[in-house]
Amino acid sequence: MTPIEEHRKQIQEKLSGKIDDVQIIADSRLEIKTSSDNLFEVMTFVAQDLEFPSLEAISGVDWETHFDVVYHIDRWDGDSTVIQVRVKLDDRDKSQVPSITSIWASANWHERELYDMFGIHVSGHPNLKRLLLPEDWDDYEHKHISELYPMRRAYTLPEKPFSYKPQPNKEV
């Protein structure tokens, strides 16, 4: 049994009920589908019992009807398995995932970026504010609410290049 199948078996045994689906989608890519309520438990299991020490990336995907948040987690010691955890968020207006910074500290910026680009709220994040866009981006004049979160599909590029107007000097 290859390592990836072992991981799959373990996940199926230990996390049944917490996950919707687990399957091998490609060479050394294992996908877990779960919901945002169970995400933290699944992640804790992956990090501690399966010993996947490193979070690679958190990607949001806007499917127009719903959001997907995809986590890529890997282990470095010769095992090429990458676990891909997919969370489906149905409620577009109140989309929310729990923060996993307590499991992997590197999730900090990835979650901020997720919030920044997609407007997906990350509950329990220590410092959830804009990362790549200006911190006062919300105060700008926006034609549409979607412009707040540029990686959403509804966001269209502005006709004129956006000019950055800094706010009057705030005392630092």
């Binding site: 020490p53 979070l55 500290a105």
Partner: peptide, 27 residues
């Protein structure tokens, strides 16, 4: 080593902390 993995170090920074982390070998 623990911090390097937990904080998401990659590349030479990770390997400097004692992890054999090179994609050319792993995958």
């Amino acid at each position: 080593k623990e911090n390097a993995l937990n904080l998401g170090a990659t590349g030479p920074v990770l390997r400097a902390s004692g992890v054999q982390g090179d994609i050319r070998k792993i995958e």
